[in-house]
Simulated scan of single mutants.
Amino acid sequence: MASVWRLAFTFVAVGLGFCHGKLCFPDCAEMREGDKVPDPTNCFRYYYCSDPEGTGDLIHSSEPLDCPEGYYFNAELHILECEPIVPENMHCTALCNPCEVKCTTPGTLIPNVNDCGMYKICLDNGNSLDDVCPSNLPYFDYETGLCSQDSSACYNLCDPCDLYCTHEGKVPDPVDCTMYYYCDPPLLSHFECPNDETFNPDTLVCEQSLTGNCTNLC
């Protein structure tokens, strides 16, 4: 019975599309040509919005731009510009990690950040169920919540080699598994695991390696 339910649910979901869960990407919705929007992962960067086909569907630039040194990007809707950093202000708030796509509502579809041919179905208990796009629609479009033939619709914002300092706490060093960073946005402090231990990116603590070696994230 469970497999029949899953097949039926998948058919409806892939055919109709559902609102996606909590994603982390520059949002040009309701913006105008040439408007700037914040980089949701970094309070010192921003993206431009543009309408490539003149249809009113704006997209963000492929790469973010950096604010000048000593400036941050003010994400308030009535500002949306780089402004001088004021020490007593909170500049880096409400950041998100593009590699942590979370379910917000049961029944929504969210991308698998490691495989564009797969997606996740959000369940009632907050967990998710992995599923695969059909062969005739091999790519999951994270914006529409539909499988499609367009590979450019893939969720490609998670870079395992990038270091996302979005909330206070430990984050792994992507190029050295014996080290980690302590993040206090936007500040980072580098640490080495003691006693030849390796940093576990799941538990976020240094542990003795059972194999005597470790694998870097990138």
Rank of each mutant, 00 (worst) to 15 (best):
L65A: 12
Y72P: 11
P84Y: 03
F11S: 04
H91R: 08
P84E: 10
C43H: 11
P40G: 07
D141H: 14
N89S: 12
Y47H: 15
C154D: 13
C206G: 04
D131Y: 00
D159T: 07
M90I: 03
P160S: 08
T166V: 15
D176K: 13
T211G: 10
P68D: 00
C147F: 07
L163F: 08
H20M: 03
D150H: 05
D39R: 11
E30L: 14
Y164R: 08
T93C: 07
W5I: 10
C96Y: 01
S135T: 08
V205T: 02
C183F: 00
E207W: 12
F44M: 07
P87R: 13
V113N: 04
S152R: 15
N195H: 13
Y46V: 03
C92H: 00
H20E: 06
D115Y: 11
Q149G: 00
T41S: 15
L23A: 01
G145P: 10
V37I: 11
D150F: 04
I110G: 01
L7H: 08
N42L: 04
I79N: 05
N127D: 11
T105V: 14
S3T: 09
N89E: 15
G117V: 06
N42H: 13
T104S: 06
D202M: 02
S128V: 01
N213P: 08
T10D: 05
F44T: 13
I110Q: 09
C28T: 05
C154P: 12
T203V: 09
N112L: 13
L204V: 11
T166C: 09
C49F: 12
T166D: 00
S61V: 00
G169P: 10
V205M: 03
Y119G: 04
T93L: 05
F73T: 02
S128T: 14
E88C: 02
H78K: 15
N97M: 01
N74F: 09
T203C: 06
Y181N: 07
T41R: 15
P106F: 03
M31H: 01
L77C: 03
C183S: 05
A2I: 09
E76I: 15
S209I: 04
Y46A: 06
G17E: 11
Y119W: 09
L58R: 10
P111C: 08
T144S: 11
Y139K: 13
V14W: 09
A29S: 14
V101G: 08
V4W: 09
I110P: 09
C147R: 02
C177G: 10
V205D: 04
C67N: 00
G117P: 11
P201W: 11
C183E: 06
S61I: 00
D27E: 01
G70D: 10
A75D: 12
E143I: 08
C122P: 12
P174R: 03
L217S: 01
L137Q: 14
Q208G: 12
D184Q: 15
C206I: 04
